[in-house]
Amino acid sequence: MPDPRASDDKASITVLVADDNDVAQRLCRRVLEKAGYSVLIAADGLQAVEVALAKRPAMILMDVAMPGIDGIEAMRRIKAEIPGQPIVIASAHSMASDRERFLAAGADDILSKPFRLADLVAIVAKLTSRT
């Protein structure tokens, strides 16, 4: 549902949202499209790897607890193919040890669930503007 007020310059920027929870998918799609990004959805880890390699999104918002391969493994595989691919781990696992674990695995940033919508937009903007 593209927003007519979305700035055109961001329409070419594609963001991949990898999350098995359909509520989370809908929320992210709604918020990011409103912010002017193109949004791709993957419902599990393997699908995320597939889409990332095929569509080369500007950044990926990656859940961790997903069926099949989890977000960490998916991130590893993607970074192995596209080392510069920005990936944000968006997880409900939000203990301190989890954060370190994700960063060590190569995440560019971390977004803890639940999140404020502004934080989601800001972190996507930060990582997409870098590219």
Partner: peptide, 9 residues
């Protein structure tokens, strides 16, 4: 937190 993500968002 997963449940709250939808609720909050």
């Amino acid at each position: 937190r997963t449940a709250l993500t939808g609720i909050q968002g």
